[in-house]
Nucleic acid binder design. Structure first.
Length: 891
RNA sequence: GGGCAUAUAGCUCAGCUGGUUAGAGCGCUACAUUGACAUUGUAGAGGUCAGAGGUUCGAGUCCUCUUAUGCCCACCA
């Protein structure tokens, strides 16, 4: 073994003449206190993540192994399409946790020799991005209309490019081992081509149509929204009762009454029976409307007056009434939220103004019967929280209930439901499968056209004479137009339309011969938050089943939301936000990742707080120091390929415990139980390995003759494998430590350890028993107020404990073995037949507890039913427990 | 109005198919310069497992009801 830094040793020996021998031994055995720069074996006293993380990430990236094509083994494929991050360019904890889970799965499978592809990318996030850029423009005193479409889009492109770079760097900061060479973007030429192809195919199959329907309209965004893009805010609004010809109707939106064309009552409501089927003219303070009275059992006769004014153009429910009862549809509110000519004297006013004026007019005409406070849900835009105006509009829709001939005459809905019902796709946790069915079953035609500018233009062109051309690109459209002038549809597609193609558009589809598409689709796991089950997951299933004819992924792993310690959402306004980058710079990426992993279960929210991250940092440091110690005890740092054979029961035990751990961790990971895997690894590493076995090894190695490697191979064997088991959780520190093995290979592409041999339960019992005895002796010392520095004489007699382990017990418990006679009777300890010269006084409380325990055991054993019904093994265990407890009490 | 989830030590959570005197980490108390680690070690205090019934020889664990909290869905105008 090289002894570096002899100069220092010499220097010290010179100064400390008296301690020459001591000092030279010190340096001989502990060469790792050397300066980091001059000795690559040395490890700093505490792990400093900042010193290594960037360098390690670069080494990973440079190795090319993020790209599955370069992996040494070309095994079975395992792929994850990374959910695109939000477009604002800020990595928040939700995204950080997703990256941690995905990287965990990828690294685990890569270690298992699978050909892993984690494909990163971003989407253009249409409304979100446009809203963001519009806000920036507003702060500059301009808007998109002043700029014009082209300049505005250029502006958005700049913004997106910038935030994409930021997100990319932050994703790397998290240690994500994704294949950057395949990075995708929904707005790239390839993916846009996929989008147009999807649109055209669906159009040709009659699954996309243009039609006049009631849609959710956000006046702020000046665009339609899909049903699930509408959120509800609880509020206390007003319920207005309006005299309405011979009726009184109650409404929360009085101005819409100007466009009523129907009046609905319950079929059994005697009050209104005579009016059924009649068309009645109603004068609303000078504004005349004609309504058709009809019956519908949905009407609650108890609510308000039991009569509902029906406004088909501006209410989804009313629109359905209109369809069923052939009502006229009068559009009252335009896309800017202004009253149309149908509003008579209110024309041109915005909705709020019209409401105020109309109410005032009603009041002066004596038609406003009463006003009540009324709690209801206001529907608002999920992006900008502006109140939604439902209105009828000519839009593009995806028909979800239309049978598709080449898909077994099934509808999109049916295809998507069957994919999960058949078990082809598994959703975790499985309770979300029910939620999924419920949503799918109630899905209405999906409005996919948006009036915003930032998005995929709808691939439809119109000729001068209003002929519609649906095709892949403008050149094709021109050809088909045969010289006629063409104009492209000004609308863009819902961002989720392109996102729905994500798993396959990123792999080369529509080219079904593409290598990646063949190898990696369907993807293996879709890891994402339960909050976008409908937005995204459901739509990916729908699109893949239809367009590709297969599922998009085999398993959906839905993670929960990250919350603060009180369970509140993390938000700027609450001031409880935790910035992941800040945490990384303080505690390191591994610590953050581990904190996000432990205590997390699929579908369950995770409470995160800084102390927890600090605790994880402590663990990472512990692993570091365990390694440091082991390396310092090792004459030659080497990997040990075969489980070391040993006759020492404690060695056998730690190997057995490790094998058990190895097996359990693998099983947990296979079942997506990441937290349980981490907790077991944590307990083994800290408690069994560091606190118990390493301490034992310390004492035993010390007593061995020079030249005997002692427990070196076992320590190295377990450490090496622990690094591999830990790697998917805490990739950086494990990779750094691994470098000490000097194998020239990255830990990232090593092999996942396989549990070896039988798990020796007897050895484990022996180990735990021995540790228990040590603990007990320490307890006795503490209770007898004996300082840890004192070594009280102690006589240990045992037939169960190996002779050589008696000294070990004494060393670790810090007692002095003695052969002098001790009053055995007064010093007898119940456990393991060990006799020492200390006595533990049982407190009255302890004594009472023990007596109660004995009583309960005696009662149990006296119970005929118990003895005859319980398994013999359980009865026997209880008898043993009773004997032990009695023994303890009597001594 | 439906549906789902959660309820275990001061805090965050384990406890899988019923049999442990109910565990861990943080925090708390006391002690400690133990040949890696004070980002540490050792020992300790702290819980009638939300409440009430039930099934069982036996329930934190299964069933029913109740309470609290959170979330999702829904066209009560």
């Amino acid at each position: 073994m090289p002894i570096p830094f002899e100069g220092s040793a010499f220097l010290l020996t010179k100064i400390l003449i008296k301690y020459t021998i001591l000092v030279s031994i010190y340096f001989f055995r502990y060469p790792f206190y050397m300066d980091k720069e001059t000795d690559n074996f040395s490890l700093a006293k505490a792990y400093e993540p900042q010193a290594y993380e960037d360098e390690i990430y670069q080494a990973w990236e440079a190795s090319g192994f993020f790209n599955p094509d370069n992996l040494p083994t070309q095994g079975e494929a395992f792929s994850i399409a990374m959910p695109p991050p939000n477009a604002t360019g800020i990595l928040h904890l939700g995204h950080a946790s997703a990256l941690a889970y995905e990287d965990l799965m990828i690294r685990y499978k890569r270690l298992q020799g699978l050909q892993t592809l984690w494909l990163p990318g971003t989407d253009h996030a249409a409304i979100a991005t446009q809203t963001k850029v519009e806000k920036i423009l507003a702060s500059e005193g301009t808007d998109r209309h002043i700029l014009g479409r082209d300049k505005f889009l250029a502006r958005v492109k700049d913004y997106v490019a910038n935030s994409r770079d930021i997100i990319k760097n932050q994703t790397k900061k998290m240690g994500s081992s994704c294949d950057w060479s395949r990075e995708a973007y929904t707005f790239s030429d390839d993916l846009s081509q996929a989008v147009n192809t999807a649109f055209v195919r669906m159009y040709d199959d009659g699954l996309i149509y243009r039609g006049l329907r009631i849609v959710n309209w956000c006046p702020r965004c000046a665009s339609t929204l899909a049903d699930d893009e509408v959120e509800y805010q609880e509020q206390v609004g007003k319920l207005y009762y309006i005299k309405y010809g011979p009726f009184v109707v109650a409404t929360t939106r009085p101005e819409t009454k100007l466009a009523d064309t129907g009046l609905a009552v319950h079929p059994d409501d005697a009050r209104y029976k005579n009016y059924l089927g009649q068309e009645i003219e109603i004068d609303l303070a000078g504004h005349k409307i004609t309504v058709k009275v009809f019956a519908d059992s949905q009407v609650d006769p108890e609510f308000g007056s039991g009569a509902i004014g029906v406004t088909p153009a501006h209410s989804a429910v009313d629109y359905e009434f209109a369809q069923k009862n052939n009502l006229k549809i009068i559009k009252l509110i335009d896309e800017q939220g202004h009253i149309l000519a149908s509003g008579g004297k209110y024309t041109g006013l915005d909705v709020q103004e019209a409401r105020a004026k109309f109410l005032a007019d009603l009041e002066s005409a004596g038609l406003l019967v009463k006003v009540e406070d009324y709690p209801n849900n206001l529907s608002v835009c999920y992006r900008c929280s502006t109140a939604i105006e439902p209105l009828t509009s000519e839009q593009w829709f995806v028909a979800v209930d239309k049978k598709i001939a080449h898909r077994g005459n099934k509808t999109l809905k049916e295809l998507a439901i069957e994919a999960v019902k058949s078990g082809d796709i598994k959703i975790l946790p499985d309770r979300f499968e029910k939620v999924y069915y419920h949503w799918m079953e109630n899905l209405h035609d999906w409005c996919i056209s948006r009036q915003i500018w930032w998005g995929h233009r709808i691939p439809v062109w119109y000729t001068e004479d209003h002929e519609k051309i649906v095709t892949l690109n403008e050149a094709e459209a021109s050809k088909l137009a045969q010289g006629k002038k063409i104009t492209q549809d000004p609308d863009t597609l819902d961002t989720w339309f392109s996102s729905a193609l994500w798993t396959f558009s990123t792999l080369g589809w529509p080219n079904e011969e593409a290598k990646d598409f063949i190898k990696f689709h369907p993807t293996t796991v879709m890891e994402t938050g339960y909050d976008i089950l409908f937005f995204w997951v459901a739509r990916m299933i729908l699109m893949s089943e239809y367009l590709v004819g297969t599922k998009p992924f085999a398993t959906v792993y839905l993670h929960g939301m990250v919350r603060d310690k009180e369970g509140r959402k993390l938000s700027k306004s609450l001031g409880n936000g935790i910035d992941p980058l800040d945490m990384i710079s303080q505690y390191g990426t591994d610590a953050l990742r581990l904190s996000l992993m432990m205590g997390a279960a699929p579908g369950a929210d995770l409470k995160l707080y800084e102390e927890k991250i600090a605790g994880s940092r402590n663990f990472v440091n512990k692993l570091w120091n365990i390694s440091r110690f082991i390396f310092s005890q090792t004459t030659d740092i080497h990997t040990v390929d075969v489980e070391p054979q040993t006759t020492d029961k404690l060695d056998q035990a730690i190997l057995a415990k490790f094998n058990k751990l190895n097996k359990e961790v693998t099983e947990h990971l296979d079942k997506y139980e990441f937290s349980l895997a981490a907790i077991k690894l944590y307990q083994f590493t800290w408690t069994d390995f560091a606190d118990s076995y390493v301490e034992i090894a310390k004492k035993q190695t010390l007593r061995r003759a020079q030249g005997d490697v002692g427990k070196e191979d076992i320590l190295l064997y377990i450490l090496e494998r622990l690094l591999k088991l830990w790697h998917p959780f805490i990739p950086f520190v494990t990779e750094v430590i691994w470098k000490q093995f000097q194998t020239n290979a990255l830990l990232m592409v090593e092999h996942w350890p396989k549990a070896q041999g039988k798990i020796d339960a007897q050895a484990i019992l022996y180990f735990d028993g021995l540790v228990g005895v040590i603990s007990y002796l320490r307890e006795l010392k503490a209770e007898n107020k004996i300082s840890p520095s004192e070594f009280p004489p102690c006589k240990i007699l045992s037939e169960e404990v190996n002779r050589e382990h008696l000294q070990l017990i004494a060393d670790l418990a810090r007692v002095k073995l003695t052969s002098e006679d001790i009053d055995v009777e007064s010093a007898k300890i119940w456990f393991c037949e060990i006799y020492i010269n200390l006595k533990k006084e049982m407190s009255p409380k302890e004594k009472a507890e023990l007596e109660n325990y004995i009583k309960s055991l005696e009662a149990k054993l006296a119970n005929e039913n118990f003895v005859s019904n319980a398994p013999a093994q359980v009865v026997e265990e209880n008898q043993k427990k009773l004997a032990a407890a009695k023994n303890k009490l009597n001594n």
